[in-house]
Amino acid sequence: MLWLSPLLAIALTSVVALVIFAAAGRDPFSSLVRFLFSPLGDLYSFGELLIKAAPLILIAVGLSVGFRAGVWNIGAEGQLVLGVIFGGWVALNYGPSGAPWVLPAMLLAGAIGGAFWAAGPAFLKTRFNANEILTSLMLNYVAALWLSYLVFGPWRDPMGFNFPQSEPLAPAALFPIIIEGTRANIGIIVALLTVALSWVVLSRRLVGFELKVTGLSAPAARYAGFSARRAVWIGMLTGGVAAGIAGVGEIAGPLAQIFPTASPGYGYAAIIVAFLGRLHPVGIVFSGLLMSLLYLSGDVAQMSLGLPSAITGLFQGMLLFFMLAADVLIRYRVRWRRAVPALALEAAR
């Protein structure tokens, strides 16, 4: 039944959207159609949808591994930034050589960077039982400042008029475009491969079952002999690797340069994507596409409907809200009862 609530949430959000469009004096149905479908109008826009969805899906799949096991990695944003730093280091130092191994090396370095950043909270959790939510969240700020330091300092483009940005990355350090005439690059394929891999591992290998059991019931996991520490390490590192690779995807893809604000907040948005997708790789593909669509639709709202872009945040929030509500209502039954008279309560005592 629980797969139903995302669909229910989408339906309810659409209903509210209709009301909002009508209240704003627009024709509600044609507005909704335009809101949802105009970002899919042509090949270029479709490519945009994919390149925005790819990092969200990639990170969300990585995070979902931990979330299944009750490992709350909120640090994907920082892990993504570490991917930018490690991958960026390779790109800036070896990109100009034009060697074919530069791109794979960037991905590897990004993965190592993300994993390195996730290892801190994992270590603190397993060794000192420190709350990984707090430690991973705080490291996001450290990562952002580290990247700022690099881009303001050693990595600043000498030809860039002192502006905080690196040199443009060499062509060898950029993802090849897979759809001519768009910005859609092989980052999308990387994301889909990750989805497939994690699907197989989570559903067909014992480690996936272990993580699920650990998340559902700690006593049952102990009884089965599934190590909670192992789950923390696997959960954190998988999230870190995925976020690190997503970070490389940003600089090797749409940015093509390193900025202090390399991450547009994908590390946080991916948390919503993961839950909206029910922590299932296939669900995450859909929720990632939906989330990406909402981002693009927010721009449409401004461009052709004359509505404020805040509407994207509004719809994202509503989607999550309705899904959580639907979860509760599916699991529990609401019973409307007349208030019990005070006397009866008294007697019941």
């Binding site: 826009s45 945009e48 925005k52 910005r183 940003e250 749409p254 940015l255 900025f259 604000t261 547009p264 907040g265 981002y295 693009l296 721009d299 401004q302 461009m303 404020p308 872009s309 805040a310």
Partner: peptide, 15 residues
């Protein structure tokens, strides 16, 4: 036509 709050560098190009 005015678009505001387009904070992400990645989005500017598309828009």
């Amino acid at each position: 036509t005015v678009l505001e709050n387009i904070a992400q560098i990645q989005d500017g190009e598309r828009l």
